[in-house]
Write a protein that binds this DNA or RNA. Sequence first.
DNA 1: CGTACGATTGATCCTGATCAAAGTAAGTGG
DNA 2: CCACTTACTTTGATCAGGATCAATCGTACG
Lengths: 221, 221
Amino acid sequence: MTAPARFTAPYSRIPAAVAAAPHGIAALPGAVTKYGRNAEIFGEGDEAEFVYRVRSGTVRVYRILSDGRRMIGSFHFAGDTFGVETGDEHSTSAEAVTDCEIIATPRMAVSRRAEADHAFSHELWQSAVAELAGARKHMLVLGCQSALERVSSFLLEMAQRSSVGGVISLPMSRQDIADYLGLTIETVSRTFTQLTERGAIEVPSSRTIVLRSQAFLRQAA
Amino acid sequence: MTAPARFTAPYSRIPAAVAAAPHGIAALPGAVTKYGRNAEIFGEGDEAEFVYRVRSGTVRVYRILSDGRRMIGSFHFAGDTFGVETGDEHSTSAEAVTDCEIIATPRMAVSRRAEADHAFSHELWQSAVAELAGARKHMLVLGCQSALERVSSFLLEMAQRSSVGGVISLPMSRQDIADYLGLTIETVSRTFTQLTERGAIEVPSSRTIVLRSQAFLRQAA
DNA sequence: CGTACGATTGATCCTGATCAAAGTAAGTGG
DNA sequence: CCACTTACTTTGATCAGGATCAATCGTACG
C-alpha cells in the first residue's frame, strides 16, 4: 500500500528539434518535438496549452496517487491523439515510453479550426468518444478480471495495435504493464511464465512476445 | 468467478408518456419517456438511435462479461447525458435504477444540429471529454485503491452529486455499488460498518448515509 | 569486468472473495 | 391486521489470488 519514490528518476524534458509538420488523419498545423525515453511531455496540473499527436514512438498517460501509486490510463502509438482536456489544465501526465516524435498543436488553433470546420469538429468529437470507449473497456478489465484475464486482454490489445506476423515488440517495461493492468510486476511476470507453460505465448526476450495461440488468449480474456 | 443468472428478472420496458420537452443545459428536442425501476433503456448491441438525458431519477450504465460479471461504468443523475456513441450500436447497456424520466433525442437531430450550431457542437464535445475525465478518475479507483478507499471515494462522489445537508440518499442497491467499485456486496457492507465504527458515517437505514466526518473519508480515499 | 537496472522466481502474508446463515424491511394476500 | 413471501442487507467462517518481502538471474552499459 505504501510506495517509495519510484518514478522520480530520469525526467529529462527534451524540447529539441521543432519544425512545421501537418501530419496524421486530421492534418493539424503543429510543431514536432522529440522526446527522449521517459521524458515528460506534460504533467498533471500543467496548463493545457496543446493537443498532442504521436508521430512515432509510444506514450503513456497516467495519474499518480498522493502515496506514489501510479495508474497508467492508456498507451498511445503513432497516429493517436492525446492530452485533450475540457478544463484549463491537464488532468493527467504524459511521458515518452520510448524515444518519440510528438506533434503539438496549440489548443487555440484547435478550437478556432473546430469552429470553422464542421468535419474537423466532428472528428475531434469522435476521437474523444473513441477514447471514452477505450476507457470503458479498460474499466471492465480493471473492475472484474483476474490477473490471467488482464494479461491476456493486454496481449490481445497489443497484438491488434502493433504486432507483426504474430510477434509483439513491447515498447514498455513490466512496471508499465503492471501499472496499466492494476497488478504488480511480479504478478505480470508470473502470468507471462504461466502463459508460456500453457503454450499460449513464447518470450524469447523480455520485450518480445511470440503469439502461439491467440485462441487461448481470447478464451482466457 | 462464476455468476448465476442475476439481473434477468424484472426488465419491464415502459415506453409510456411521450411529450415534447426541451430541457436541460443543452435544450434538445426530444420525447420524454418514463421507465420503471430496473427497466432497460437500451442494451449493448442495440442500434444507437438516440442520445439520452436524465430528467429525473438515476440511471446505471454497464457492461456484462460473458460469464455474468457486471461492471457498472457510471451512474447518471438529473441533467446528465448518456448513451452517446461513435459507432452505430451501443457499447454499453443502460437501466433505470429508480423510476426515471428520460429525454431521448434522435441521433440524427443531434448531428444535424451540431453541424449548424458551433456552440452546441462544442458543448457536445465537452460533455464527451467530461465523461472521459470521469472514466479516468474511476479507472484510478478500480486500478489501485483498497476497499476502504473505494467506498470512501464513492461516498464523496455521491455527496458531491446529491447530498442534502450532509445526508446522502442512495438510489442504488449494495449490489450496484459493488459492481461499480469492483467489489462484492459483502465487502461493501463490511466497509460501511467499518466506516460507521470509525465514526465517519452513520447508516440509519440502508439507503441513507449521514456524513459525520468528510475529513476522514477524504484522507481514506 | 563490474555495476546497475530490469525481470524472474520463491516464500509468506493479507485483503477481499466465497460460502453460509441469519437478520431486516417491504409488500401481498388471507 | 397479521402471517407469509421475497428481496436486500448484514455478519460470520474460511479460502485463495495476488501483494509483499527477499533473493537470484540476465543483460545492457560504462
